[in-house]
Design a binder for these strands. Structure first.
Lengths: 227, 227
DNA sequence: CCACAAATGGAAGAGGTTGTCCGTTTAGCG
DNA sequence: CGCTAAACGGACAACCTCTTCCATTTGTGG
């Protein structure tokens, strides 16, 4: 069960509590993370940092001492979800039935997106600064490719399915989920059902148009602004 | 053919050129609209108004004289696309084959979303102020319901398809299309293909989870901020 | 209990966007 | 051509968000 809280501190990303700091600092650190997670889940990641500081009961400076930039707070707030994501993938890879593994992994990620409005932004959005996130995405990409290949080999997944189709689903789901929190779970479930049904290998099914080169870790790579 | 440019001036929305104004004013009005459309198509509607004024070759005050608020410029910029949208629906309703009509209507709207990054924001986003937009959405909703019912009657569309599934597709597509413009068209096409394939009536197909009550004109209705 | 460094909070700076004011320019008409 | 009102443009005020600074408070080891 690799899903446990994992108190172990990597020193790579900013914002991880360092042993030897004062008790109030540790407490505020935790308060900030919790406030950030709650706020992001409800309203998405475009909540102003000042709001988070206020709801954590600390001043702005405290927030910025613990998380030097806005991005580092976001990254820290979602690192747990990221772990869960990778764990779901690992679990899917261990499933005897590749198709069932794929389905449950996709369902899990879609549900995470639906239940936390910030998740999509943090996972798919632009955050060119966090190395952890990049590594996780690359890792997810690789595991996914493996999972997809296995499901094809068993003949359960259509042959022209492309790993990028998972990214396609995640992006689509992020669009669906952006709406009112009350409906997002139901809508997300229905979208996934539609998607999975088409993914199943069927004899008479028409060919799909070619996949777009959507790689998880490439999204928002080069900027295209032309001001 | 109700698709013609329609020079007729409704006086409801702000920004419609009024006869009797000076030639330079009319010219600037047109320049602003064009600049806005280009900028929005490329980068989405979150382009600063000052950028649009600059690219139209006018000062900020001129922009605000023609379009009193940021929202009115957005509404004016997309009113043509909105007309196209409704026209596509009308055309689909006139098609002898309801399924073909539905497919082409969905393809058209998805393509519009893919080719214009601002379209989704303008059409699905929050704009509680523009009555034209509300009317168009309501109208689209009604036509869609009709189209869906007809396709079900001919047995081409699965019985548990819900009109809200069209909204689901549009939202999903908006998520897909938000990415790099180079890939959005291909990605959008593929998403639509996946979706349509599942929508076709098939005997052995499993039931879908219940639809979420997504109504086009309800999106972003009540706000859920809790600051 | 005390001293000192760690930690804090509020204020203020920097940057960006929306919308307004006012002196100046220019189209259109006689 | 010249007058007048419509139209314009750039500067400016108001606001918001991110981030930093510094005087003050507070936890903690001795």
């Amino acid at each position: 069960m690799p899903v446990q809280p994992s108190r172990n501190q990597s020193s790579s990303a900013a914002g991880t509590p360092v042993r030897g700091q004062r008790a109030d600092a540790r407490h505020n650190h935790a308060q900030l993370l919790q406030a950030a997670r709650e706020a992001y889940a409800l309203n998405g990641t475009d909540v102003p940092s000042s709001t988070i500081a206020r709801r954590a009961g600390v001043g702005a400076a405290t927030l910025y001492r613990h998380f030097p930039t806005r991005g580092s707070l976001i990254a820290a707030a979602f690192s747990e979800q990221l772990t869960d994501c990778v764990a779901a993938l690992d679990e899917a890879l261990r499933d005897d039935d590749p198709w069932r593994g794929l389905c449950s992994a996709l369902a899990k990620v879609c549900r995470m997106q639906a239940e936390d409005r910030g998740f999509s932004a943090a996972f798919l959005g632009e955050s060119p600064d966090d190395p952890d996130l990049h590594r996780a995405r690359a890792r997810a990409e690789a595991g996914l490719a493996q999972l997809v290949q296995r499901a094809k080999n068993t003949g359960q997944l259509r042959k022209d399915f492309d790993p990028s189709d998972v990214t396609l689903l995640l992006l689509a789901n992020s669009g669906v989920v952006r709406q009112s929190p009350e409906t997002s779970l139901a809508a997300s479930r229905r979208l996934l059902a539609y998607f999975l049904q088409s993914c199943r290998a069927t004899d008479g099914a028409p060919f799909l148009p070619p996949p777009a080169p959507l790689r998880l870790d490439d999204l928002y790579g080069p900027s295209h602004r032309t001001d």
